[in-house]
Each structure stands twice: as C-alpha cells, then as structure tokens.
Amino acid sequence: MVELHAPGVMEADRLSATLNALADPTRRAILEQLARGDASPTELAAPFDMSLAAVSKHLKVLERAGLLSRGREAQWRPCHLEASALRDAATWLERYRRFWDRSLDALADHLERVPRRRPR
C-alpha cells in the first residue's frame, strides 16, 4: 500500500468526523474515561460541571463520529468506546508523520548537494 499523507475521500470524511469530534477537551476526557471501561451517561457527566443534557450532546457527536456506541439496555444504555475509529485516526497521523520524515530526509540530502555561497 502506498503511504500517502492524503487519505481517500471516504476515509477523509470519516477522519474529519473523528478529528473534529476529538477537537473538544470534554469529549477527549470522556473517551479517556471510556478507555477504562464502559460507563453510563450519568457516570460520564460526574467529573464535569455540566448538565446531563450537555454531556448527551457530546456523546451524540462521539457516536456520529463512530467513536462511541450505546448499549441496548433500556435503563442504563452504557457507553462503549469504539477503538477502531481512534486507531484509524492514529494510523493516519502516523502516515502523516512518516510523510514529513521522508520529505525532510530528502530535503537534508538535497541541501547537501546545493552549492554553498559562503558569506564574505
């Protein structure tokens, strides 16, 4: 597979949703909490000075981005971290980093070949 910093269109849409969902500190904190285990919306709201309604909005954003799924239990509906979307984002970022690593290696080689004009 070609390592390119530009993902395909479909992948880009999904990544956009993921990265945008991750752009909020509250949502990142929610994900960190979920990485320790499933939790109810009430449990997730507890660390924040925030209404359950406000937390529910964040949960919806995370759910739309594919980062979170909800259980079927009528009362509890536990939130579950969907790690694959997070891994996709991590994979893309790693490719992006490699793109620049490669480019900067090539730039270093190029600079060795550029004739230097010494000052004075």
Partner: peptide
C-alpha cells in the same frame, strides 16, 4: 482548538494497547 489535544495523544499513545 486544534484536533490534536494532549488528551487525544495520551489516549492514542497510552491507550492504543489498552484499546
């Protein structure tokens, strides 16, 4: 507010194995 927060990278870094 960039997409790459410290919390995000912590989730990615520490969390990936866990995830």
């Amino acid at each position: 507010e960039a997409a790459l927060g410290m919390g995000f990278t912590r989730v990615l870094g520490e969390g990936c194995d866990k995830l």
